[in-house]
């Protein structure tokens, strides 16, 4: 990673002229956006607007065709995902991607991976440094489970959890990497109303930890309730951005996104 130093108060993430093309399809078209630190940033837009593509570019799953992504003053576009995780960006997936045969606790312990360093020989020989690190991994993971409210099912095989808890577990695992920025891809998908409310509280709790949250979501109530800023994508372009109240009043957004409702 190269780039200039990062000053507190600067935008945590700067996206400049980002293009993502898949053959003939352009998923992102000259996206420019600067995101302040320690807020809840929602990204909305109709299906196919490029929200998940944007997440995939930021988290390194995709290398953008053009443009730059500056995180904490460092250019991160095109860097492999595990390095980006280490740099402080964690994410969840639209379709839950847990390690299903591992226990709930082990999943969160996986989240400690980028913050620990024991290798194969230290592990095989059970060196003292590795033992104490392993204890720390376990206790930290339990803390994150506690935070997410899943401490009760630490020993359960994660694939057997109901979908709502799986989604929360995935967030806990991402948090365990100690990110500065966490990307949540449709965290409320498949949740009932009560679960969605709890999720809203959890996300606000994450913000209180000082972690910047960026979420793609279709549940408008949740977004209007918890987010500080909203970015609207439409056909891969930035259509609007602002506070939830501003977005609600924005005529371009209403036309593009809520247009169908207006007709009624």
């Amino acid at each position: 990673m190269s780039g200039t130093g990062y000053q507190p108060g600067e935008p945590i993430l700067k996206v400049n002229g980002l293009w993502m093309k898949f053959g003939g399809v352009t998923a992102l078209r000259d996206v420019c956006y600067e995101m302040p630190e320690k807020i809840i940033q929602a990204v909305i837009g109709p299906n196919g607007a490029g929200k998940t593509t944007l997440f995939n570019c930021i988290s390194g799953m995709l290398g953008p065709s053009e443009g730059s992504i500056i995180f904490l003053g460092h250019a991160i576009e095109g860097i492999v995902p595990h390095r980006i995780a280490r740099a402080g960006i964690a994410r969840t997936f639209q379709h839950v991607a847990l390690f299903k045969k591992m226990t709930v606790l082990e999943n969160v312990m996986m989240g400690r991976h980028p913050r620990t360093g024991s290798g194969m020989f230290a592990a095989g020989l059970r060196l003292p440094g590795m033992r104490s690190e392993e204890k720390l991994i376990r206790s930290k993971a339990l803390e994150y489970l506690e935070f997410a409210g899943l401490a009760g099912c630490a020993r359960v095989e994660s694939g057997t959890l109901p979908i709502g808890k799986q989604k929360i577990l995935e967030i806990a695992r991402a948090l365990a990497t100690e990110p500065r920025l966490i990307l949540l891809d449709e965290p409320a998908g498949g949740l009932n109303m009560k679960e969605t409310e709890d999720l809203g509280e959890l996300i606000q709790g994450i913000k209180k930890l000082g972690v910047t949250v960026m979420l793609v979501e279709h549940d408008m109530n949740l977004i209007m309730d918890i987010s500080d800023r909203v970015l609207v994508l439409h056909y891969g372009e930035v259509l609007a951005s602002g506070t939830p109240a501003e977005i609600k009043e924005n005529s371009a957004v209403i036309e593009a996104y809520l247009g169908a409702e207006n007709d009624n």
Binding site: S59, G60, M61, V80, P81, H82, A85, R86, A90, R91, F93, A97, L98, F99, K100, K101, M102, E106, M109, M110, G111, R112, H113, P114, T116, S118, G119, M120, A123, G124, L125, R126, M130, E133, E134, I137, R173, A174, A176, T177
Partner: peptide, 27 residues
């Protein structure tokens, strides 16, 4: 000992979901 460690968990994670393993920082 390797299996019951950070390294072993990472190996099992790779088996289950490589993309997710990368996302939590496993090279």
């Amino acid at each position: 000992h390797v299996i019951h460690s950070r390294v072993g968990r990472a190996l099992r994670a790779i088996h289950e979901d490589e993309r997710a393993a990368e996302s939590v920082g496993v090279p």
